[in-house]
Amino acid sequence: ICKIPGCTKRYTDPSSLRKHVKTVH
């Protein structure tokens, strides 16, 4: 789960989550 407030994205893969946070936030 993405911990950024207001973001509801969920990831099972930690590397995908990290990439999401870097690119989207």
Rank of each mutant, 00 (worst) to 15 (best):
P14M: 13
S15L: 07
I4M: 04
C7K: 01
T12P: 11
C7I: 00
V21D: 10
S15T: 10
D13Q: 02
I4E: 12
C2L: 02
T8N: 10
V21T: 09
V24M: 07
D13I: 01
T12I: 06
C7W: 00
T8F: 10
H25Q: 04
V21P: 05
V24H: 12
V21Q: 15
S15I: 10
I1L: 05
P5C: 02
V21I: 06
C2F: 03
P5N: 04
C7V: 02
K22T: 13
R10H: 13
S16N: 10
H25K: 01
K3M: 07
T12K: 11
I1S: 04
S15C: 10
H20I: 02
I4L: 04
V24F: 09
P5V: 06
K9G: 09
R18Y: 07
I1V: 10
I4G: 05
P5I: 03
C7E: 06
R18N: 15
C7Y: 03
T12D: 15
K22F: 08
K19A: 14
H20V: 01
P5D: 05
C7G: 04
P14W: 04
L17A: 07
T8K: 05
R18Q: 14
P14D: 12
T8Y: 08
T23E: 14
D13A: 01
Y11K: 09
T23A: 11
P14S: 11
P5E: 13
D13K: 00
I1T: 05
V21A: 15
P14C: 08
S16I: 08
T23D: 13
C2E: 09
V24I: 07
T12L: 04
Y11A: 07
T12E: 15
R18L: 13
V21F: 02
V21R: 01
V24W: 06
L17F: 04
K9P: 03
R18P: 09
R10Q: 12
R10V: 13
Y11D: 14
T8W: 00
I1Q: 04
R18E: 15
P14F: 10
T8D: 15
L17D: 11
T23L: 08
R18A: 15
K9Y: 14
I1D: 11
C7M: 01
T12G: 13
K9I: 05
C7P: 02
I1C: 08
T8A: 07
T23I: 09
S15D: 15
V24S: 13
V24C: 12
C2Y: 04
V24N: 10
P14Q: 14
I4T: 09
C2G: 04
G6Q: 02
H25N: 03
D13F: 00
G6E: 07
T8R: 03
K3F: 10
D13Y: 00
I1R: 00
V21S: 06
P14I: 05
K3T: 10
T23F: 06
G6K: 00
K19C: 13
L17Q: 02
S16A: 14
C2W: 00
R18S: 15
P5S: 10
D13W: 00
C7R: 01
K22D: 15
S15G: 13
Y11Q: 08
T12Y: 03
T23M: 09
K9L: 05
H20Y: 00
C7Q: 02
K22S: 14
S15Q: 15
H20R: 00
G6M: 03
R10A: 14
S16E: 14
K9N: 09
L17T: 02
K3Q: 09
Y11C: 15
K19M: 15
T12H: 03
D13T: 06
K9W: 12
G6Y: 01
Y11P: 07
I4R: 00
V24T: 11
C7T: 01
I4K: 01
L17P: 07
Y11N: 11
T12S: 13
T23C: 07
L17K: 01
S15A: 14
K9R: 06
T23Y: 05
R10M: 13
R10Y: 08
C2S: 05
G6V: 01
R10F: 08
C7F: 00
H25P: 05
L17C: 04
T8H: 11
K19Q: 15
Y11V: 09
D13N: 08
P14T: 09
P14V: 10
T12F: 03
T8S: 09
P5W: 00
K19Y: 13
D13P: 00
S15Y: 07
I4Y: 12
T8L: 10
Y11E: 10
C7S: 02
S16H: 10
I1W: 00
C7H: 00
T8G: 12
T23K: 08
P5G: 08
T12Q: 11
H20W: 00
S15H: 08
T23V: 08
L17N: 04
S16R: 08
P5M: 04
K3I: 10
H25V: 02
K19H: 13
H25R: 01
K3R: 06
R18C: 14
R18K: 14
K9S: 12
K22Q: 15
H25Y: 00
P5T: 04
C7N: 05
H20F: 00
Y11T: 11
K9A: 15
I4Q: 08
K9C: 09
K19G: 13
K9F: 14
T12W: 04
K19P: 04
D13G: 01
R18M: 15
I4S: 08
I1P: 00
D13C: 03
K9Q: 11
V24Q: 13
L17R: 00
K22R: 12
K3E: 11
